[in-house]
Amino acid sequence: MNIFRFAGDMSHVVSILVLLLRLRSSKSAVGISLKTQELFLIVFVTRYLDLFTTFYSLYNSFMKVAYIASTTYIIWMIRFQEPYKSKYDASQDSFLHIKFAVAPCAGLALFACLVKGELSPIDILWTFSIFLEALAIVPQLFVLQRYREVENLTGHYVFFLGAYRGLYILNWVYRSYYEQFYRHNWLVYVSGAVQTALYVDFFYYYVVSKYYGGKLTLPT
């Protein structure tokens, strides 16, 4: 564990807590993409299958369960709990049907694992989750574009979610530099870079709006 990875995990935790706070305080899911949450749940469920096969640490196991539980709760809240259910506007969260993200990532993961010769289902699903996570934020970014003006807590939720994987990139640099036996996984680096790159323009408008004060508004 290193400071970058810990900061990244804490950023991810903060993002989930801020999203929960935002849902509770605004009593609606307007401006929040349910699709993004569902994609993240698929990411966690396919990535953390080793929960049952490999024990790394209490922290690692606890966080995996916490991510799956919190994301499941958020999806349940928006889908089934009032007032979120009646206020959720699926037509505003219509970009990127889940299958159009899942299918290419599944194909790419299968291909990558064939090339690498790692054919265990756990490895293939793990690789699939690495690719899928890069796309998971796309529906949320489109919902932000739709509503243009970004509500304060929603802005923080997206910012910390983007910062988490950006900090992981620093963690990979650190590990490749300091850990003698660390084996590189270029698929993870590329996917993490693409994922973080998708946030770049949001980061820009977020930082500018925080620096100059005023509302966070995204250009059309």
Partner: peptide
């Protein structure tokens, strides 16, 4: 042993 690349991460 060789830390399984990124498998021990979240």
């Amino acid at each position: 042993g060789a830390a399984a690349a990124a498998k021990d991460e979240l």
